[in-house]
Design a protein around this nucleic acid. Structure first.
Lengths: 253, 253
DNA sequence: CGGGCCGTAGTGGTCCGGCCACTTGACCCT
DNA sequence: AGGGTCAAGTGGCCGGACCACTACGGCCCG
């Protein structure tokens, strides 16, 4: 079932992906007007219906806005800042944002976590271990781990933010790098990180929980970066998650 | 222009709204299969094209999933939890989550804010003042204020989280209470809060920025609760934004 | 009797052509 | 200079057609 979905991507999603990629590459800056539907259909060799469907999906995703009779315009706020320049691509923003947000969530959860929450969290850790080479299952368990922590705060809005941040993990860059996390050594590291977070939650220690979550996500970012650019990542690591980690340490005092 | 957009809602959004309302009312539970496109089109008196567009928007919004050759199924996780009972994401959850997240964002922004950011923020404050009784304009300026802070972090993912949290403000309960914030006194308080946040940002003081944002959103929550339950507001204790507000949320239900 | 294969009905996916409402810009008239 | 009209271009919606996929029922064979 997940295999079928990966292989058979619907046309409207493919078109939307292409248009989003153009936006992310800066071909169309915020406020710019996209080509008309009829022209996009001609250039992409598809029907106008399919272009319309793609545009609607981008509209709902907040990437574009449609002005009737006028055209389709790129919206100002998107997941990736197109012309930010030196502030790395989406995945680093995402990990940095997650560290900030999920660190606070973990701290809040430490103050109100219950036995059932802890049991559920341990279950996700075991599930990730049992998943072995089944990437879909491991991914689902990883997601469940982070979502359970948010749910332990008893705040539905936080759970939704975590779920939303998780959904944004699925991108081209992530797909390319995903195989990296298949090694048993990195899996073990993740399980250790998760276990440390659960221990901090069980101890009811907000600062420790926050720090454990920061450590976990900072490590993921480092691994990610190491994989992405093995040679020449010096500048980015100076402005990226490492500085975020330093900030977190100060807060922990 | 905003007036035109309010009046002219596109058909696909109207259809999607109707289907979402059916889901929220429990006519279709999670996992249930919606009627086929052709049948929906017939029953709603629209073309199948428009139904398809509505379904795509619901799909992107995470409300349904489409299985080719099989049908359209209601997804388990949606923005509204229909049968969650007493822990649904309500306004207090939202404000609590915002305090937690936007506090950290303000702290991060204090370390990297620029003159242009500060100018833009001051512009939103002036815009809110100039808006007077124009609720739509005031709302837009308020939104811009919070979003500009997130943008000052130079992290697109954070900006999106803030935008997403903002979108969830528009609910039935919010609409009922919104008139409360029309008083000149409360408007002035908001302007003062915003000004204090900008001053902290300008001073480059993360702790001060965090605290100012917490104070702002905690006050909004207090005002909100006072409006909701005018006779239960006297027992508020000031221990911290998230725990206090979440407790109040429980009492409200 | 049970399992596998085939055919049919129903599903969503995509395309195409058509017409309508809205927007904008150019041109003309007062 | 300002206002009105018209044409071109835009997105919005409709309806028909055909294709790929899925599920189910019936039939045949071991």
């Amino acid at each position: 079932m997940p295999l079928t979905q990966v292989e058979t991507q619907r046309l409207y999603r493919r078109i939307a992906g292409q248009i989003a990629a153009m936006i992310d590459r800066g071909e169309f800056v915020a406020g710019a007007r996209l080509p008309p539907e009829r022209e996009l259909a001609r250039e992409l060799g598809v029907s106008r219906t399919s272009v319309r469907e793609a545009i609607i999906s981008l509209e709902i995703a907040g990437r574009v806005e449609v002005r009737v009779g006028n055209g389709i315009f790129v919206r100002r706020t998107g997941p990736a800042k197109p012309a930010a320049g030196d502030d790395g691509p989406g995945p680093f923003d995402l990990l940095s944002a997650r560290a900030m947000i999920e660190g606070e969530i973990a701290a809040s959860a430490a103050k109100r976590v219950r036995r059932a929450d802890l049991d559920a969290l341990r279950e996700t850790i075991a599930d990730m271990r049992d998943a072995g080479d089944d990437a879909a299952r491991r991914n689902a368990a990883d997601r469940a781990f982070h979502l359970r922590i948010a749910e332990a705060t008893k705040n539905g809005a936080l759970a939704q933010v975590v779920a939303s941040l998780w959904e944004q993990r699925g991108g081209e860059l992530w797909t390319r790098i995903e195989g990296h996390f298949h090694t048993p050594a990195l899996r073990a590291r993740t399980a250790d990180d998760h276990t440390a977070i659960v221990a901090a939650l069980e101890a009811g220690d907000p600062d420790r929980a926050r720090a454990a979550m920061h450590r976990h996500l900072a490590r993921v970012a480092r691994e990610f970066q190491r994989r992405l650019e093995p040679e020449g990542a010096a500048r980015r690591s100076a402005t990226g998650p490492d500085s975020r980690t330093v900030r977190a340490d100060r807060r922990a005092h």
